[in-house]
Amino acid sequence: MADLRGLYQEMILDHSKRPRNFRALEGADCHAEGYNPLCGDRITIYVKLENDRISDISFQGTGCAISTSSASLLTETLKGKTRAEADALFEQFHALVTGKGNGDKAGAVTLGKLAVFSGVAEFPVRVKCATLAWHTFRSALEGENKTVTTE
């Protein structure tokens, strides 16, 4: 049970039940759809850019508690960040959920609230849930406008 509490922390449950920035974004500069065919999770991420900075970001879709809260916290965290900062965060986040370090690097942007996903590392089959939104975000920025899948 300790493991499960570590995975489903309060903040994760809160964001999965009351996802933030859960809407389509009018006038978005780019968007992309992410799909996990294994569990049917499907999300769309919308991004508005001002020069190199993410001025607004939102998402819509259906998914499990991990993927929904990850998308919600992604939008909260990335608003106002530059592309380079977003890339660095993804790298740290990925390291965190795959158990390759605590994610935080000296001198770089810090994970902040995203650290709540540290419990995912103990559940390897759930890593894809946690990273779906991030892959989708990256696809949106790359302007591919196509569906990314976790498989």
Binding site: M1, L7, K17, C39, D41, G63, I66, F123, V125
Partner: peptide
Amino acid sequence: EGIHPHDVGTVLDQEGIAVRTGHHCAQPLM
């Protein structure tokens, strides 16, 4: 109600229960 099957599956797995979660290779049925 209000709980995604994937999360149910993880909780059940911790209890030693093996069930299938997902679309069961029958997406049109879902």
